[in-house]
Amino acid sequence: MAHDDPFLPEFDETHRPSPALSVGVLVSLAAALAVIAVVVFVPADSGPGSSQDSFHPDGWEGASAQIPSDLFDPVAAGESLPDGYRPVLPRDGIFPVYAPKFRTVENTDWPSDELIIGVEIDGDARAYPIGFLTRREIVVDMHRGIPTFVTW
């Protein structure tokens, strides 16, 4: 599928949380954030990488996006919060990229003044565009066997 439309949703069914999980998450979120009326939690997409030209340099399939249903939440559990701590959104309300894919330079059409975060490990250079990170905030990656975590 062509990937020149910046608003093309990038569905990745293999990493989509199951409906059952979403219900579990909903229940725990409701408990965690009574101040926010969370209606439903189904991520619109779970990460870039459905196009034919994309790949992962490590051959990595990505991390599971599913939040374990019994995962501890210190905020919901009532741990005393440090000064200045403010609940704002539910967990993964801004949905991270758990299974990133990449493209070669030849298959990339970013403008040259696009701001990026650049990471180079053992000669393996990767670029993560800020414009996209502003929307998704987190990319969980594996870089030459090193588990990395890009945030903005």
């Binding site: 990937h3 439309d5 910046p6 608003f7 093309l8 990038e10 870039p48 990488g49 196009s51 030209d53 994309s54 340099p57 990229v97 990133p100 894919k101 990449f102 493209r103 070669t104 330079v105 990339t108 059409d109 970013w110 403008p111 040259s112 003044d113 696009e114 701001l115 990026i116 650049g118 180079e120 000669g123 393996d124 250079a125 990767r126 670029a127 993560y128 565009p129 414009g131 996209f132 990319v139």
Partner: peptide
């Protein structure tokens, strides 16, 4: 900037994501 990064890392890969 992407152009500067590309100059220094011609073999770089780019996250499969739209630019702005």
């Amino acid at each position: 900037e992407w152009g500067d990064w590309l100059e220094r890392h011609p073999d770089t890969v780019a996250l499969d994501a739209p630019a702005r």
